[in-house]
């Protein structure tokens, strides 16, 4: 049949006219829905279906602040990335990494984050949980350098330890079997004027954090203070606060040494 015959032209015109009406109806509906819509009931996939998430390899969940994120590492990996590479190499298994670190996160923010349902589900799936937190509580972007001797540092520490305790409790609530590695604090300001006094505070925080970790089964406190004690500037990024690639490698190697599988 010739496409230019009278009948086919008429048919095309008719179809086009119908489509025109259909789209017009869609437009009218969109406006109506936008201003006065009602929700409909749609059956969502049942919970049991979601749980059937087949697992292969290892699952690593990383929580915490910019250290978890890898800020300062030119390759963007951070200690978590380096560590995961190392696990892959050693175990020859695939590793699923979920990095939930948020730059500048403090312990009270992590406390909120960890209460989210999806975060809980992620922790539940994990074989290894990595945590870095506290650096921003203590140093507060350099502010901590000025007023670390003040009385309120004790109050801040008390709050931090309380949050830490809560965070660990939540992790254990979701997952009783995973190994948890809690990476301790180092002193990036060690070579500054008041570095010695600052170090004292960092050591105290580390000691108290280790005490909190020890209460829970399979939560391992990983010290990093000594790694950055000598020649700190070789291992720091240009912001003189975050580790650089070398610094992250040091942390990753230390955590890797503690891991068992």
């Amino acid at each position: 049949m010739n496409i230019l015959s009278k009948n086919s032209i008429r048919a095309i015109t008719g179809v086009a006219a119908l489509l025109c009406l259909l789209w017009l109806a869609g437009l009218g509906w969109a406006v109506g829905e936008y201003y006065d819509g009602t929700s409909e009931n749609i059956s969502k996939p049942s919970v049991s279906e979601q749980k059937a998430d087949q697992k292969k390899g290892l699952t690593v969940v990383a929580l915490g602040d910019s250290l978890t994120r890898g800020t300062g590492d030119e390759t963007g990996k951070g200690y978590v990335g380096v560590l995961v590479d190392e696990i892959k190499e050693k175990t020859k298994k695939s590793v699923q990494l979920t990095n939930l670190g948020i730059n500048g996160q403090r312990s009270d923010q992590l406390r909120n984050q960890i209460q989210e349902e999806e975060i809980g589900r992620q922790i539940q799936k994990a074989d290894v949980v990595l945590v870095t937190i506290g650096g921003n509580d203590l140093f507060r972007g350099g502010q901590g350098l000025i007023d670390f001797q003040a009385e309120d540092i004790t109050a801040i520490e008390k709050k931090y330890l309380d949050n830490l305790n809560f965070i660990f409790t939540e992790i254990r609530k979701h997952n009783q079997t995973a190994n948890v590695f809690f990476v301790g604090l180092y002193n990036p300001f060690i070579e500054l004027n008041q570095g010695k006094e600052m170090s004292k505070v960092v050591r105290k925080w580390n000691y108290d954090s280790a005490e909190v970790s020890a209460v829970f089964p399979k939560i391992v406190f990983v010290p990093t203070f000594d790694l950055f004690e000598l020649k700190v500037n070789d291992y720091l990024y240009s912001d003189k606060f975050h580790p650089n690639q070398k610094g992250y490698r040091l942390i990753a190697e230390r955590v890797a040494a503690l891991m068992t599988w």
Binding site: L24, A25, G26, L27, W29, A30
Partner: peptide
């Protein structure tokens, strides 16, 4: 989708 089509058409 039908609503989207309506808007695109407009």
């Amino acid at each position: 989708l039908l609503m989207d089509f309506g808007l695109v058409w407009f």
